[in-house]
Design a binder for these strands. Structure first.
Length: 274
DNA sequence: CCGACGTCCTGCTAGC
DNA sequence: TGCTAGCAGGACGTCG
């Protein structure tokens, strides 16, 4: 499940492999992704050169020398990789951008929850994001974050998954951050004390930073931009550890559904506040 | 306006 | 052994 740390790893991996290399051809698969690829976009892309690649939330932005942007979302199973010439084509390969050094920039996505779009200019990217994206979870503005949490009657799990509150957190790092802050996923935002908001904010920043250091987490499909698996899955405290011992107290980790998502927590370290 | 829930998609797996 | 129901979840549409 590519969340911020996985997407950041892809971007860092791809940067030295694609920047400055002209796109000489585009091959598009027949199956539709979440956002359809317009046929005329191929002509817009061929002949351009990536000048930069960056990340915003879970989105990847490839800045082309035409001023346009390739906007990529990995969804659940998306893989965005650069491979040397002559690599055999795998299943579920939806885009192949041939580069002028012979290598290929590829987008593969088994479940097709992701998307690849061509956006004419930087000014139009915000619209493509859909709802406004919240801040990156590095230096989260403390006061607005606490106010958003405390003014909401939604539970913490739903709040952390909301990309307009905070960009880049998904199911795995929401669970890991809640454990780190000692908060129960079903606790309502409105029942938090200012101190709880601070603990949660810092826990998110720490979890995300460590996960980036570990090159993200590979559960099944995720690989980085050069094809390498992640390493942070070995550091999970609660996610996917149902029935296993809590690293703090030894109590068996439990799994419940919150906000429609599997949510893992320690019933002793994370007590509900409401 | 807000929050909850269903939908998309494929592959793996638990359970009979 | 072989089959199938259920689950995985990011973003978004719909419903109450």
């Amino acid at each position: 499940m590519p969340e911020l740390p996985e997407v950041e790893t892809v971007v860092r991996d791809l940067r030295p492999l694609i920047v400055g290399r002209c796109i000489v051809s585009v091959r598009v698969g027949s199956k539709k992704l979440r956002k359809p690829w317009e046929q005329e976009w191929a002509d817009c892309v061929v002949g351009t050169t990536p000048l930069a690649i960056r990340r915003r939330g879970k989105w990847i932005l490839v800045d082309l020398d035409s001023g346009a942007i390739l906007l990529v979302h990995l969804g659940m199973t998306g893989q965005f990789t650069a491979v040397p010439a002559g690599e055999p084509a795998p299943d579920h390969l939806h885009f192949t951008f041939a580069l002028n050094d012979g290598s290929e920039l590829r987008y593969r996505d088994t479940r097709r929850f992701g998307s690849v779009q061509w956006i004419a200019s930087d000014a139009l990217v915000q619209d493509a994001f859909g709802e406004r994206l919240g801040p990156e979870p590095f230096d989260i503005p403390a006061k607005p974050f606490a106010e958003a949490l405390r003014s909401s009657r939604r539970n913490l799990k739903a709040l952390l998954l909301d990309q307009s509150l905070l960009a880049g957190v998904g199911n795995i790092y929401a669970d890991e951050s809640l454990f780190r802050s000692g908060l129960h996923p079903q606790t309502l935002g409105s029942s938090l004390k200012p101190k709880d908001c601070d603990r949660l904010r810092l826990a998110i920043e720490e979890v995300i930073a460590k996960a980036i250091d570990g090159r993200g987490s590979t559960i099944r499909d995720y690989i980085g931009g050069s094809g390498l698996r992640g390493g942070y899955q070995d550091e999970f405290t609660v996610y996917g550890r149902t029935g296993e011992a809590c690293v703090n107290c030894g109590t068996a980790i439990e799994m419940i559904r919150v906000a429609g998502r599997a949510s893992h927590f320690c019933p002793k370290c994370q007590k509900r506040k409401n």
